[in-house]
Design a binder for these strands. Structure first.
Length: 968
RNA sequence: GGGUGCUUAGCUCAGCUGGUAGAGCGUCGCCUUUACACGGCGGAUGUCGCAGGUUCGAGUCCUGCAGCACCCA
């Protein structure tokens, strides 16, 4: 093995090998169970971001674990056409060429988008390969490819046949910039500063129909402007959108509002439009808002639309598709954009004296999630999915436990939305997407069919002759095809072996941001079309943020391409990447400055394994996950540690063809100990994986590898190997070395398999060399069996023995470090108060202690002899003494002992207090009380020893630095 | 307005069914010790948001409050 770990060399090479060998495809195995994850298809809008890389790491880890367990495992890959988002990307590219979408024919434009899709899809494929994703590339799908388009067609037609899809004229969320309808979910509302305009609508005299008095003649008194008994002239309505007044159909008051009771049924003259509209009463009106009197604009406000439905008010649309005033407006205002119209209308009303006042007002402004344009409620014909029954079934599936959310609390979010769900508007006025399979005969006939021929047949049946048909121009919401993804990718509607084997899939790995968009809709459609839930579990992970807790976005300039963490990137290139193609180019300078500050040297290469391990250790149940490059750096060091441990192992096993498995009786206590610890790490790992706690999985592996295998076992085994290699090695030494080699080989080989799902590359690279030496064969670690914790049962005796060794060694190191003794300098050790067990252990592990703690001679202080001046450490009853002569500064030893005494005194007080509490002794479980008593004994013993030591060292310090020579 | 989270060491975060507060990073000291200085050894740092309650015992359970974040209206 190379001395240095070079992920950039290892990783691409191994991935190519795996892919070429076909290891990613499910291997049909008799009797094996299936395991399947479908990838949340990334949008073909560009490249994968950190969130994708995180998600892919989790899915790949699960996939690799199950593949190793022997399940027939499929990770189904693919991409999403992402209607609006992708169309916008391509439109922006056209704009950069100085052209517009409408300069092209629909066919030409769609061809452009397909070309872009190929490019983006390739990039995504490259990124996923670099991340090590073990998806079955032979099954890659795209939501608009032929098979999936058939699935969309079939689903639409069936839902329509069952009356679950309908076409209707309703108020929709209209994006005037993109000129398409949107679903509720695609509208994001945020609070913005606006104004509240108080408008005066002149009242008409009941009898004459004439407007009473002159505008303003009544001496307006705010809300009271309407109730001036004698000269009542107008009502005051408060609105945040004065321009929509041209479409007003009524003025409404709350029926319980005493101020306006007498006005109900009166009529007002709508200024500018010069129409008469009624004053109506409706509970919807909040008497506390504005004047308590509101204008009702049925076609441009969702609430007003509902009011209009209740009262049978006329629907007057005043806007064109791009939100300009239409022919319903007075001729002088026609063609004005809605914002220009606002200014103009306010001006005209002001000069007519019809504006009572204008006050600043915060309001919720709805915007399209893609375009950012203010959404206009707009009356159009659209297609809808009737969701009530679908949602009820989907709620029941989660309530009944057929779909389980992890963490569980996300099911509450799911229920809350599902229980208030509205019909889903699925038509979009775009060019890129699945064309709606509906044809019109121009005479009011609509034919929903699987093909144009079928539509013609339907038309013929209706009209008794062929009639010309035109297909609906609109496309379907992207999420319609996404909702079919778990079964359309597996072969629905035709059916397939994969569909039978893998549906329902096992787990959906996704972010909480698309629970409504996607998860809920997959459950609804899965139940509808497959009669079964699409997945048994939904693992909802957190959102990856940058180190400052900011969402990563292009406009913030804080995005990192995961590949740049893997391969590294120079500063100029990073800046170029972050500042090119910005929607707001003026941000470039600030982004460059911030980038230079944060990454003055660019980003060094970390390798895929370090990045993946970082993602895993980040995956707690928190909903926000801050990504910090320092952690990747730390995990890169972990890879390096593993690499070097493997180098040591391989070197030690050199010359062996295969290490014979050691007979259990030949294993040393250390051998037994590391096997026991491995077993417990593997058990923790399995538990963590079963509960999707990848952070626990990562830390279990990290701690075992670093703190146990490397820090202790490898150190312990060094002298064993050396002794076994000596020319005059005894048979016992040879046996011990052989057992240690076997143990090291087995433990490391097993550990590699356990690490493989999180760090696929480095483990494969090492395993291919190590496995033969460990007596394991196979073409790839990918196909090796998942390690079983049960093969490494807990060995309590060995753990107790090694626990003692570790305590003694740590005690000595504490003294050494506290006294700044050079690590290479060997120190003598004197033992005091050793019990029989201590003596036996000293006998057994003397050589080991000498090696690990850097000792010279070890002697026991004869009972009754006074201890020489020394630094001390306590392990149970045993006191370890490092004689001070020439080594130790009494003052710093005194300080060290004082710290220990302080901590001990606290422990002692707490434990004593607890045991003195009669209620505790009476009520606490006996084992807890016993544990507390044992602790007390321990603390008291330590306390006495510490006080003795302190007294001695203090005496020593008092008489100066020259202490008596140690007797040994 | 309704809902869901979060508040623990300088920073980022773990802490399972209540039983002596942990990790990584950072920081300080010592050390090129024969797998690894991408390393080793050791140290320091916490009224676990606040206030009550339950309990022998609360970071952990309950109630209230405050602050932050997100979702839905």
């Amino acid at each position: 093995m190379d001395k240095t770990y070079s992920p950039g060399e290892i990783e691409p090479r191994l991935y190519q090998r795996w892919e070429a060998a076909g290891y990613f495809a499910p291997r049909p195995t008799a009797g094996a169970r299936g395991y399947c994850i479908v990838i949340p298809p990334p949008n073909v809008t560009g490249t994968l971001h950190m969130g994708h890389a995180f998600q892919d790491t989790i899915m790949d880890a699960l996939t690799r674990v199950h593949r190793m367990r022997g399940d027939v495992t499929l990770w189904q890959p693919g991409t999403d056409h992402a209607g609006i988002a992708t169309q916008m990307v391509v439109e922006r590219m056209l704009n950069a060429e100085g052209r517009r979408r409408t300069d092209l024919s629909r066919d030409e434009f769609v061809r452009r988008v397909w070309a872009w899709k190929e490019q983006s899809g390739d990039t995504i494929g490259r990124q996923m390969r670099r991340l090590g994703a073990s998806v079955d590339w032979s099954r890659e799908r795209f939501t608009m490819d032929e098979g999936l388009s058939r699935a969309v067609l079939e689903a639409f037609v069936r839902l329509h046949e069952q009356g679950l899809i309908y076409r209707g004229q309703r108020l929709v969320n209209w994006d005037p910039q993109l000129r398409t309808a949107l679903s509720d979910l695609e509208v994001l509302s945020s609070e913005e500063e606006g104004s509240l305009w108080h408008l005066r609508y002149p009242l008409l005299d009941a009898g004459t129909g004439e407007a009473g008095g002159g505008a303003g003649a009544a001496g307006a008194t705010g809300a009271g402007g309407a109730d001036g008994a004698g000269g009542r002239a107008y009502v005051v309505v408060a609105t945040t959108r004065p321009e929509t007044m041209l479409g007003d159909a009524a003025v409404a008051v709350n029926p319980a509002d005493q101020r306006y009771r007498h006005l109900i049924g009166a009529r007002v003259r709508l200024p500018l439009a010069e129409r008469e509209i009624p004053v109506i009463a409706d509970d919807f009106v909040d008497p506390g808002f504005g004047s308590g009197c509101v204008k009702i604009t049925p076609t441009h406000d969702f609430n007003d639309y509902a009011v209009a439905q209740r009262h049978g008010l006329p629907l007057i649309n005043i806007f064109t598709a791009d939100a300009r005033l239409n022919e319903a407006a007075p001729p002088r205002l026609r063609g004005l954009d809605r914002f220009a119209a606002r200014t103009r209308i306010v001006e005209e009303l002001t000069s007519a004296g019809l504006i009572e006042r204008i006050e600043p007002h915060k309001l919720m402004v709805p915007r399209g999630d893609r375009s950012g344009a203010v959404i206009e409620p707009y009356l159009t014909d659209q297609w809808y999915v009737r969701v009530a029954t679908l949602a009820a079934a989907a709620i029941e599936a989660v309530r009944g436990g057929r779909v389980r959310f992890v963490p569980e609390h996300w099911s509450r979010t799911y229920f809350q939305w599902m229980e208030n769900i509205q019909d889903w508007c699925i038509s979009r006025q775009l060019w890129w997407g699945h064309r709606i399979p509906a044809w019109y005969d121009g005479k009011g006939g609509v034919y929903v069919a699987r093909s144009e021929a079928e539509a013609h047949a339907q038309a013929r049946a209706r009209h008794g002759q062929d009639v010309p048909l035109t297909q609906d121009e609109d496309v379907l919401d992207t999420w319609f095809s996404s909702a079919l993804w778990p079964f359309s990718t597996l072969g629905w509607p035709e059916g397939s072996a994969e569909l039978t084997r893998f549906y329902p899939t096992d787990v959906l790995v996704t972010g909480f941001d698309i629970i409504f968009f996607w998860v809920a809709r997959m459950i609804m459609f899965g139940l509808k079309f497959m009669g079964a839930v699409p997945f048994r579990e939904v693992y909802v992970h957190g959102l990856i943020l940058d180190a400052e807790g900011q969402k990563m976005s292009k406009s913030k300039g804080n995005v990192i391409d995961p590949i740049d963490i893997i391969d590294g990137i120079e500063l100029p290139e990073l800046i170029a990447k972050r500042t090119s193609g910005l929607m707001q180019p003026h941000l470039a300078a600030a982004i460059e400055r911030a980038t230079r500050k944060q990454y003055p040297q660019g980003i060094p290469a970390h390798g895929t394994d370090a990045l993946r391990f970082t993602f895993a250790s980040l995956a707690s149940q928190s909903r926000e996950l801050r990504f910090d490059l320092n952690r990747v750096d730390g995990n890169r060091k972990f890879c390096n540690k593993l690499w070097n441990a493997a180098r040591f192992a391989l070197r030690s096993l050199e010359g062996e063809t295969a290490v014979a498995a050691a007979a259990p009786g030949e294993l040393s206590v250390a051998d037994r100990w590391i096997r026991s610890r491995l077993g417990s790490a593997l058990a923790a790992l399995d538990e963590a994986l079963a509960t999707y706690r990848f952070d626990f999985a990562a830390s279990a592996l990290y701690e075992f590898t670093w703190d146990e295998l490397c820090a202790w076992y490898i150190e312990i085994v060094k002298p064993v190997f050396a002794a076994g290699a000596a020319a005059d090695a005894s048979p016992a030494a040879l046996t011990a070395a052989r057992a240690a080699r076997a143990t090291l080989a087995t433990v490391l080989e097993t550990l590699l398999r356990a690490l493989h799902p999180l760090m696929p590359f480095i483990t494969e690279e090492i395993w291919l060399r190590l496995a033969p030496l460990a007596g394991v064969s196979g073409p790839s670690i990918m196909l090796a069996p998942w390690p079983r914790a049960a093969d490494f049962p807990r060995d309590a005796a060995a753990e107790a023995e090694l626990g003692w060794v570790r305590s003694v060694v740590q005690g000595i190191w504490q003294i050494r470090s506290g006294m700044d003794i050079d690590p290479s300098r060997r120190v003598p050790l004197l033992l005091q108060h050793a019990g029989p067990l201590d003596r036996a252990r000293l006998q057994r592990y003397g050589a080991l202690l000498t090696h690990l703690a850097g000792l010279a001679q070890v002697h026991e202080l004869p009972a009754g002899d006074a201890a020489p001046p020394a630094a001390a450490s306590m392990v149970g009853e045993l006191t370890l003494l490092v004689p001070m002569a020439g080594l130790i500064d009494p003052a710093s030893e005194l300080a060290r002992l004082d710290r220990l005494l302080q901590k001990n005194t606290q422990d002692l007080a707490r434990t004593r207090g607890r045991l003195a509490n009669d209620a505790f002794v009476r009520n606490a479980p006996p084992e807890v009380v016993a544990q507390e008593r044992a602790r007390l004994t321990e603390f008291e013993r330590t306390h006495a020893a510490l006080e003795r030591q302190i007294a001695q060292v203090r005496a020593l310090a008092a008489q100066g630095s020259a202490g008596p020579e140690p007797r040994s």
